[in-house]
């Protein structure tokens, strides 16, 4: 991609009617261009970083979950040391570590970051917009069952809801329960059932 097309692309996304938001779009581009002019970052580095980010998608998390469903020793490794188990799938970690929490018939896990939007990016990529929203961050710790209902998820009353507020260096991933009726499926077919939302715990996999 040349500099020129990248500017064109950004221009397309401009919303000129909103002064403040428009200003911040220009500000972001200005910061980027100044950092490039000063030799602090290069255009190639920016493009490579975006490409690397784009290559991390929930499909990686889904493969990890499907492996855990079909390979008991892997499941054990994943629950004991999530970081190392995810590294087996090529995930790269910086200063954070991965903690995998397992749904059971007795307990359902949900992930939130009330203070900012800490998210298991190294396994799922960039967070969905709702995960960063005020509504989700404010309410997931206070009324998780109501929030889950908004995602179409109704849990039995006797299931314990465990909310995880990731405030520090740990990033959380939910290992959902393997749905009934999937006994004949292979790992690839199982992975196709695992969505991003069920690895955050707001939904459960369905056949």
């Amino acid at each position: 991609m040349t500099e020129r097309t990248s500017h064109d692309h950004a221009a397309d996304e401009f919303q000129k009617d909103e002064e403040i938001h428009g200003y911040y779009q220009f500000l972001g581009l200005a910061i980027e261009e100044l950092l490039v002019e000063k030799g602090i970052v290069t255009g190639d580095e920016i493009r490579a970083t975006i490409e690397r980010r784009d290559s991390i998608t929930p499909a990686i998390g889904a493969r990890i979950v499907a492996r855990a469903w079909t390979d008991p020793p892997y499941r054990q490794r994943l629950l004991t040391d999530g970081t190392a188990a995810a590294e087996e799938f090529g995930c790269e970690f910086d200063a954070t570590e991965l903690v995998v929490v397992e749904n059971t018939p007795e307990a359902h896990n949900v992930i939130v970051c009330t203070l900012c939007s800490c998210y298991p990016r190294m396994v799922l990529g960039l967070p969905p917009s709702w995960y960063k929203s005020r509504e989700y961050r404010a309410r997931a710790v206070r009324e998780p069952r109501a929030v889950l209902k908004e995602f179409g998820t109704e849990l039995a009353e006797n299931v314990e809801v465990r909310v995880h507020d990731s405030t520090a260096d740990m990033r959380y991933l939910v290992l959902p329960m393997r749905p009934d009726g999937t006994e004949a499926m292979d790992e690839d077919a199982l992975a196709a059932l695992v969505t991003r939302d069920c690895m955050i715990g707001v939904t459960v996999p369905k056949v």
């Binding site: 009330t114 203070l115 969905p128 917009s129 709702w130 929203s133 005020r134 509504e135 989700y136 961050r137 404010a138 309410r139 710790v141 206070r142 929030v147 908004e150 995602f151 507020d165 707001v202």
Partner: peptide, 14 residues
Amino acid sequence: DIGGLPAGPVDTEP
């Protein structure tokens, strides 16, 4: 620092 504050429904569209 908004954990627990009242807020509206979650826009679940990604």
